Amino acid sequence: MAAALGKDSKCSIARSVEVLGDSWTLLIIREAMVTDTTRFQDFRDRLGVAGNILAKRLAFLVDEGVFERRTYQKAGTRTREEYLLTEAGRSLSVVIAALAEWGRARRPREDGTSPNFFDRKTDTRAQLAFVASDGSRIPPEQLIARRTRDS
Rank of each mutant, 00 (worst) to 15 (best):
L47R: 00
T38Y: 04
T113A: 13
F60L: 12
P115A: 08
L143F: 06
S114C: 12
R46Y: 05
A50E: 07
R90K: 14
F43M: 07
R46Q: 13
G6H: 06
A3K: 09
S114R: 11
Q142D: 13
R70K: 11
V95S: 01
P108H: 05
R137N: 02
A132K: 15
W102M: 05
A55Q: 13
D119A: 01
D119F: 00
R46F: 03
E110A: 14
G76N: 09
L5A: 05
Y72L: 09
L85I: 04
L54T: 03
G112Q: 10
S91F: 09
L92G: 02
A3H: 07
E31S: 11
A3S: 13
A50Q: 08
P140M: 05
F118I: 06
K74L: 15
V95E: 01
L20M: 03
K10W: 10
T37V: 11
D134Y: 13
E31C: 15
I96L: 15
L27Y: 01
R120Q: 14
R146V: 14
S136K: 15
R107M: 10
F130E: 00
R30C: 08
A145Q: 11
R109P: 00
D36W: 01
S91N: 10
I29H: 00
A32Q: 01
K10Q: 09
S114Y: 14
A97Y: 02
F43K: 00
